[in-house]
């Protein structure tokens, strides 16, 4: 799942992911609110077939209306099963230590990736989610 207000970024990231693994099912949202609505739908009907819980969420920080951190606020209120199985990565062009610190403090945030997204960065992300190794709780991928 990709959440970014910038359509070009969404497009680029989608293409990069496809390049990394064309079989990955990608859902894109151009704002965090619709992403939250999607999760709310999941909450109501967990068994609906076309709606599957995403494994990985790449979340932009700077977005209008609801930014990345506000997304977490809403997300924490949701009553999803297997919430902890969802890996949410912050994806941002900012190297601001403050942002990184805040991301680290979020319980459901698995890591911080700096833009631009590359295949090698994605490999780093999926290595962890595939192996499910908990040795590193927070990944800082630059």
């Amino acid at each position: 799942m990709l959440i970014d207000d910038n359509k070009i970024d969404l497009f680029v990231n989608q293409r990069i992911i496809e390049k990394y693994n064309p079989e990955i099912d990608i859902k894109t949202f151009n704002n965090a609110i619709s992403a939250i609505s999607f999760f709310k739908l999941l909450e109501l009907n967990i068994n609906m077939k076309p709606l599957t819980v995403p494994d990985v969420v790449l979340l932009d920080i700077n977005m209008p209306e609801m930014n990345g951190f506000n997304f977490f606020k809403e997300f924490n209120r949701l009553n999803l099963i297997d919430k902890s199985k969802i890996d949410i990565y912050m994806l941002s062009s900012s190297l601001c230590p403050d942002d990184i610190y805040r991301a680290r403090m979020e319980t459901h945030c698995s890591g911080y990736i700096t833009k631009p997204l590359t295949v090698s960065k994605l490999e780093n992300v999926f290595n962890k989610s595939v192996n499910n190794v908990e040795y590193e709780k927070f990944k800082k991928i630059i």
Binding site: N6, I8, D9, V12, N13, R15, I16, K19, N62, S93, S94, C96, T114, K115, P116, L117, T118
Partner: peptide
């Protein structure tokens, strides 16, 4: 200044992303 620098960086990184794709 700090925020501006970051905001300006966003389109640059987008362009870099596009460029990566273009290289392929």
């Amino acid at each position: 200044l700090y925020r501006s620098a970051h905001e300006l960086k966003a389109p640059l990184t987008s362009a870099e992303g596009l460029l990566l794709l273009l290289k392929e």
